[in-house]
Design a protein around this nucleic acid. Sequence first.
DNA 1: TGATCATTAGACCGATTGGTCTAATAGCAT
DNA 2: ATGCTATTAGACCAATCGGTCTAATGATCA
Lengths: 198, 198
Amino acid sequence: MLRSDPYDCPMTEEPKTRDRLIFAATRLFRQRGYDGTGLAEILAEAGVPKGSLYHHFPEGKADLACAAADWTALQIVRVVDDSFHGAPDWRQGATTFCYKMAKLFDILNSADACPVFGLLFDGPDQERFRVHAAAAFDLIIAAAARHGQALGLTRETALDLAETFFIGFEGGWTLARMRRDSDVLRGLPNRLYGRPPT
Amino acid sequence: MLRSDPYDCPMTEEPKTRDRLIFAATRLFRQRGYDGTGLAEILAEAGVPKGSLYHHFPEGKADLACAAADWTALQIVRVVDDSFHGAPDWRQGATTFCYKMAKLFDILNSADACPVFGLLFDGPDQERFRVHAAAAFDLIIAAAARHGQALGLTRETALDLAETFFIGFEGGWTLARMRRDSDVLRGLPNRLYGRPPT
DNA sequence: TGATCATTAGACCGATTGGTCTAATAGCAT
DNA sequence: ATGCTATTAGACCAATCGGTCTAATGATCA
């Protein structure tokens, strides 16, 4: 799911160097964090020499990290759109999202950081990463809020609802990771919105 | 607040070597993460030579990180107890906790990781840290749940309420950090429990 | 006092870090 | 084919990494 094409390039042929770097970096940063991942590891996993990295990302590791974060954010927006597409109400959309992400959690080795925010805080250039993370978060919030509006909510209500949801989701992912249990994610809607009417 | 005495030793005299190491490590890990912090930095901030570190923490950096995490967890339990002490109901206790932590957020340079869970995931010894984090979390949950029971809730309800609260809190801290805005924390009770009855 | 132990002090180590630089190569225009 | 640019390839670098080790020092007994 999160491994499909970045920038909508056709996946029939092997991804190009730049994208292979982004893939490898995304996975490794999510798993070991920014500082915990060496360039050598990324290069090895991507099968790319060092010269290419600094050709495609002149500012090196930090550049690559931002690209990886951007790509991840786009993927999450896609999951949001898939989840809310055709949902009869907010709760249904949110629930579907949680289940999709729980499945993803199980596919990843379930000890990784949250795809969205995991990669964005450490590293030497803290302020740059912080701003980048905030922008990515707003992108995702906005996507969810659009669906809320389409379901008849006012703009303010939808934004507030979306923000609250992702606050809960972020905390939920953290707990799921700590316990290695994706059911924490599946249980989120009940926590946030109460037991469903049977 | 979070700088007071570990292990209840009197603060009149200078903290001993071991505690100075824990203080410095706590602060630096929270700020730059485990992998982002070098031993040299910690040693410099604590004013302690390398030999002492490996005397007090034979397994080195990882040992120190666990000690720092344990100490932090105890501090958080204290804030929980302070917040719920004398609170008329759950919501009041939770609200006080959020305000106290918001104040702490402002005192720290407000770009740090959540005191409880920020330090615990990266690093080479991932599994050890994960288990440690889960235990610390359960400690804090249990502390809050005890107050819930004292307020008349059943054990199950209290545990569930506490878990949900800290899920929200963890996500809230993350967002507060991203936006550099402690009001995200102060707004949490309204998000979780609805607008208060005026 | 002298003996014994805990602690401090920091020189030193091999490995790895992110980053630079030059040379070789591939792709594509003409 | 020729020339030009984009890309790959990897040797090389100083700096820093976490960790080990020996010697000096402090503290506390007999």
